[in-house]
Amino acid sequence: MSNLDAVLAAGRAAAAELQRETVTLFRPGTPDFDWESGTDGSETPLVLYSGPARVKAVARSRGEEVDAGEVNVTLREYTVSLPWGIAVSDRPAVGDRVEVTASPDGRMVGLGLWVSGVEFSSTATVWRLSAEDRS
């Protein structure tokens, strides 16, 4: 093991201790509205990962107000850090969703985020996803 590998292993172990939330990362199913019955027959979402993570608001995020259709929403940026060595069923992509299912901060439970970017690096201590709260 090289010095770099040892430093990365230590950094990844330390980062894992900060991952206090539990999240589910999933790809929403394709909407399929049945006009005859008036029911929503959307496909079941594809779960890519479920487990520990760190969900942290981006300090420079100021909550940008945008129009979405006829609704005014505020975008808040978050970084979602997943364990570096996890296996996922499919590579996360922009438009996937992250839901916080458990947290020591009960106010975060139920927080739904949209993935807006995915970062890759062989020298990272965690796998970072950029995400936004569109509430």
Rank of each mutant, 00 (worst) to 15 (best):
125 T>M: 15
123 T>H: 11
91 R>T: 10
90 D>V: 07
71 V>K: 04
65 E>P: 03
87 A>Q: 11
75 L>S: 03
88 V>S: 10
102 A>N: 02
87 A>D: 11
114 W>N: 09
84 W>D: 05
78 Y>P: 00
130 S>T: 09
61 S>P: 01
123 T>I: 15
58 V>K: 13
64 E>W: 08
71 V>Q: 08
63 G>R: 03
122 S>D: 09
127 W>D: 03
90 D>L: 12
96 D>G: 05
106 G>Y: 07
89 S>M: 06
92 P>K: 12
123 T>P: 00
96 D>M: 13
122 S>N: 07
88 V>Y: 14
67 D>I: 09
96 D>A: 14
99 E>K: 04
114 W>G: 04
116 S>N: 11
118 V>T: 11
86 I>F: 07
62 R>V: 14
116 S>H: 10
97 R>T: 02
66 V>H: 06
103 S>K: 00
77 E>F: 11
93 A>Q: 09
107 R>W: 09
85 G>E: 06
69 G>D: 04
89 S>F: 14
123 T>A: 12
124 A>C: 02
117 G>S: 13
77 E>L: 12
87 A>H: 06
101 T>E: 00
78 Y>A: 02
110 G>S: 05
101 T>P: 00
73 V>K: 12
121 S>D: 14
82 L>Q: 03
112 G>R: 08
94 V>P: 04
58 V>A: 14
118 V>Q: 09
130 S>P: 02
84 W>N: 05
92 P>Y: 15
85 G>N: 05
110 G>A: 07
99 E>S: 01
127 W>S: 13
87 A>Y: 07
106 G>N: 10
102 A>Q: 01
132 E>F: 13
67 D>H: 08
72 N>R: 12
112 G>S: 11
94 V>T: 13
118 V>M: 13
70 E>S: 06
133 D>C: 11
123 T>G: 06
80 V>K: 03
127 W>F: 15
86 I>P: 01
60 R>Y: 14
102 A>T: 00
66 V>N: 04
134 R>D: 03
135 S>L: 05
113 L>I: 01
113 L>T: 00
66 V>R: 12
114 W>D: 08
64 E>C: 03
116 S>T: 15
99 E>R: 06
94 V>I: 15
98 V>E: 00
89 S>T: 15
102 A>G: 03
64 E>S: 05
109 V>E: 02
109 V>I: 15
59 A>T: 13
88 V>P: 03
92 P>N: 08
86 I>Q: 04
85 G>W: 02
74 T>L: 13
114 W>H: 09
107 R>S: 12
129 L>Y: 07
135 S>H: 07
80 V>R: 03
133 D>Y: 14
88 V>M: 15
81 S>M: 06
91 R>K: 11
90 D>M: 12
68 A>Q: 12
81 S>A: 09
